[in-house]
Design a protein around this nucleic acid. Structure first.
Lengths: 190, 190
DNA sequence: ATGTCTATGGACCGATAGGTACAAACTAAA
DNA sequence: TTTAGTTTGTACCTATCGGTCCATAGACAT
C-alpha cells in the first residue's frame, strides 16, 4: 500500500472544514475518510480516540490559532499606548473578517456551544471565549476605557461577532457580516 | 389500544425541546418517541413527512409565536409615538429574557443557521430573522432614529442576542445573558 | 537482503438510524 | 350492534453509524 503524504497537521484543517459544514453529529467517518483521503486505519492511527478526539484536536488547533493571531496581539499592547490599542483592535477586526470569510465560514466554538456537543468540550469552549473577551477588555482598558465598562463592551463585541455569523448566513448575505465588523471596529476604537 | 390525550399541538413543544437539546441530527426518532410518549405509528400519523416535517413544523410554530408576541407589537406602534416605541422595545427585551430562559434555552433558528440544516430550512430561517430585524428597525424609527441607522442598529441588536445565548451557555453563566439584554435595552431606548 | 516497525485500506462488527407495514384497539355515526 | 374510519404499538426493513481488526505495503537501520 502506497504511503500517502498525509501528516497529521495536513489532516486537521480538512477535519475542521467537515465539522464546520456538518456539525459534530453530521460528520460521519465515511465522509471524513473521503474528504481526507484517509482510510479508517490511518484515521484511527492519527486519532486513537476516534471522532471525539478528532473534534477535540480540531478545537485545540483553532484555539491555538486564535491565541497566536488574535488574543496575544491584544494582550501584549504596551500599557498606556492608547493609539497602539486602537491599531490592534482594528487589526483584529480585519483578521476576523478574513478568518470567517465574511460570515461564510462558521465559528466551530459557537456552533458547539449551541448544541449538546458543548457538554463534552465545555472547558475548551469556555476557555476560548473567556480568553477572547479578556484580551479585548485588556485592549480597551489600554485604550482608555474604565475596566468595568471594558469587560461588558468586550462581551458584547464577541456576542455581536458570533451572532453576525448566524445572521449573515441566514440571510445568505456575506456583506452583512462585513458591515457588522466595520461598525464593531468603529465602536471599539471610538 | 387506548387513545392517549396527545393532540398535535401538545407534541410540538416537546419536539422543540428535543431539537433544541440535541440538534437536528442528534434527535433520534427513538428519543423523540420516548420524550413525547408516542410510538412511531402516532408520530408518522401526525407528521407524515417524518423528521424533516417535524423540524419544519416546530420552526413554524416558533415563528408564529415570535410573530405574535415579539414582532407584531413592535410593528404596530402608532407613528410618532416615540414614548410607546421605547416601552415596546423594553417589553421585547423582557420577553426575550423569559423566552430564552436567560440563555439556558437555545434559539433553534440560530442553531440551524450555523449547521448545514440551514439549507433545508433556509426560507423559514431567513424570514424569521428578517422580520425580526425589520420590526425592531420600525420601532427605532418611531422612537426617532434615522431609518438607515435604525436598520443597522436592529441587525446588531439581534446579532448581539443570538451571540449572547452562545456566550452565556459557553460560560455556563445565565446572568451574562440577562446582562447583555439589559445593556441592549438601554442602548435601544437611549 | 533481512528484519523491524509504522502506516494503511478495507472487510467486518453490533448497534442504531429513519422509515414502512399492518393488525389491533379505539371512536363515532347509523 | 354494526360499520367505517381514525389512532395506535410494534415487528420489521435496509442503510449507515462509529469502531475493531488484521494482513500487508511501505520505510529504514543493519
Amino acid at each position: 500500500m502506497p504511503r500517502i503524504v498525509a501528516e497529521r497537521q495536513d489532516v486537521l484543517p480538512k477535519l475542521a472544514e467537515i465539522f464546520r459544514k456538518r456539525g459534530y453529529d453530521g460528520a460521519s467517518l465515511s465522509e471524513i475518510g473521503k474528504a481526507t483521503g484517509l482510510g479508517k486505519g490511518s484515521l484511527y492511527h492519527f486519532f486513537p480516540g476516534g471522532k471525539p478526539q478528532m473534534a477535540e484536536d480540531v478545537l485545540a488547533e483553532m484555539d491555538a490559532w486564535f491565541e497566536g493571531n488574535i488574543f496575544a496581539p491584544l494582550r501584549s499592547i504596551p500599557a498606556g499606548d492608547a493609539k497602539e490599542a486602537r491599531v490592534r483592535l482594528t487589526e483584529m477586526c480585519k483578521a476576523l473578517d478574513a478568518y470567517f470569510k465574511s460570515g461564510r465560514r462558521v465559528c466551530l466554538f459557537g456552533a458547539f456551544a449551541l448544541a449538546d456537543t458543548r457538554e463534552a468540550y465545555a472547558p475548551r469552549i469556555r476557555g476560548y471565549f473567556q480568553r477572547w473577551i479578556e484580551a479585548i477588555a485588556r485592549a480597551l482598558v489600554v485604550a482608555g476605557r474604565a475596566p468595568a465598562d471594558a469587560r461588558t463592551e468586550a462581551f458584547d463585541a464577541v456576542a455581536c461577532i458570533e451572532g453576525a455569523i448566524a445572521l449573515s448566513r441566514a440571510a445568505d448575505n456575506p456583506p452583512a457580516f462585513a458591515g457588522a465588523i466595520a461598525r464593531l471596529q468603529t465602536r471599539l476604537t471610538a
